[in-house]
Amino acid sequence: MVVSTPSRSGAWRGAERGGGDGGGGRITRLIPVRLRRVGLPYLLILPAVLLELLIHLVPMVIGVGMSFLKLTQFFIRNWLAAPFAGLGNYRVAVDVDSAVGAALLHSFLVTVAFTLLAVGLSWLFGMCGAVLMQRPFRGRGVLRTLFLVPYALPIYAGVITWSFMFQRDSGMINHVLVEQLHLTDEHPFWLIGGNSFASLVVVAVWRLWPFAFLVLTAGLQNIPEDLYEASAIDGASWWRQVRTITLPLLRPVNQVLVLVLFLWNFNDFNTPYVLFGKSAPREADLISIHIYQSSFVTWNFGSGAAMSVLLLLFLLLVTTVYLALTTRRRIRA
């Protein structure tokens, strides 16, 4: 696609200059119009293509290149002078006996656990919410709008509020748990230590379940009402309708939704960064923030780039397998 764009739009521009809009007979005007129909779409997508190239594809290629370099702070301004490292950065990253590799593996496992929980709960809340609000009732519109507010809030505003609520001495969570419910006598820490993982999951679900809710609500609106009416005449129960109409017809929506939720959570940087600041606790050390730290705190860009490439390969693998499995099953069904 990228290769063919410049040549085609170039051909179109040449034709435009030659033909012009001005006039001539009907037959000469036909030629530029035909050429225009070929070239115009490429010219229309050109800005988008160039921008995607500049911000996404070129940096990605460079990133892969960087991962083979010994790129430390001495070479930031002149990174081509950095010595070649071969697979050295990768070897260190996957060597679980080294400190770097062990930390990366730990961070990876934390991210897997976090993603499974956050995606599962966000989807479940969104699904239950959307299905329970499928039938109109008084106040449904208002409730829908309120449910969407966490998704509408700027990430940092919502997450910083949570970090206030999780404060040990002045936070709302400990006030409820200790002073109001008397569940413990001690004020637990929520932003450091083992609890920080739970805090992270709660905040991520709070932020993302409204998105699942929004998408599934839109998906439900595409299910024809007469399907429910016909099955009700056949005496189908509510639960049976959910299982035989709602869930199967939402399948294409769910396929995309779960994938998007997975990718967002696995790559999530914003939530831990705002919640914990630059150094996330070990128990909540998500992979994005881990790579960020190993790059910008130690200024070892080569190693950070190698870890990023490994992350991308993993995401590509999971996405491909996921799409292959879910699509095939859909065809068989």
């Binding site: 696609m1 988008a48 995607e52 911000i55 996404h56 594809l57 070129v58 940096p59 990605m60 460079i62 990133g63 960087m66 930031i76 990174w79 998007v260 990718l263 696995f266 790559n267 940087f269 994005s288 790579i291 960020y292 790059s295 860009f301 950070g304 780039a305 990023s308 490439v309 992350l311 991308l312 995401l315 996405t319």
Partner: peptide, 20 residues
Amino acid sequence: AVLSTQMFPGILFLLPLFMI
């Protein structure tokens, strides 16, 4: 291609973009 750029981890092109 355009939609699939959505799946790239931001951290992957952050470092090169910074260098660029």
